[in-house]
Simulated scan of single mutants.
Amino acid sequence: MLIFLVIIFLAVNIACVVLGAIALKYIAAEELIFSGMHMCGYGYEGDAQFLASMVWMLNTIWEVLALCLSVRIAVKHFRDLRHLGPMTGSTIGDCFRVLTQSHVLYFASSAGVSCVELINLSPAFLVR
């Protein structure tokens, strides 16, 4: 399983770096001045916005895969704890509980950011 995860992780990240590098070639930054206020603006040429959305989609797929596997591990762990019976003062159980809570927060925030970004980039799909 670990080899599978490492291969998928490397494939997704290499693809994201390549797509990001290609997209950066077609993104032009410019300075905009509105009522004396300086702001940064970006101009997209060609398929730059589509390539950026592909990077977000690949990362979202990776996060969903990682979420499914972590839920599977958590369910398996809680089933094993149920079969062992009640234990008092379990340090390993406390560590696992903290790890699970932190991963839930991580995956929830990652899913929220990915959804917002994909909604923001959705006009790139409507044009096609």
Rank of each mutant, 00 (worst) to 15 (best):
G46T: 04
L10G: 00
Y26S: 15
S53L: 07
N13K: 02
G36C: 08
S35D: 08
L99V: 08
L19R: 00
C115V: 13
L5Y: 15
A28M: 04
W56F: 10
F96K: 11
I27K: 08
L10I: 01
I3C: 06
L67M: 10
I22A: 07
T100G: 10
A21Y: 06
G93A: 00
F78R: 10
S109D: 07
A23V: 05
H103Q: 13
E117C: 09
S53P: 03
G41D: 00
T88H: 09
L84D: 12
V71Q: 12
M39Y: 02
P86F: 10
Y42S: 08
V6L: 06
L118P: 03
V113Q: 04
G46F: 11
V17R: 06
F96C: 11
R128G: 14
I27N: 04
I33T: 10
V18C: 06
R72E: 08
L69F: 14
M87R: 11
Y106G: 03
E30V: 02
L126Q: 03
A108T: 10
A66P: 02
S110W: 01
D94R: 11
E30T: 10
L5Q: 12
L10N: 00
D94L: 12
A108E: 04
G43Y: 14
S35Q: 06
I92L: 15
C16Q: 03
S53R: 15
S122Q: 05
F96N: 14
T100D: 04
E63I: 05
V116E: 13
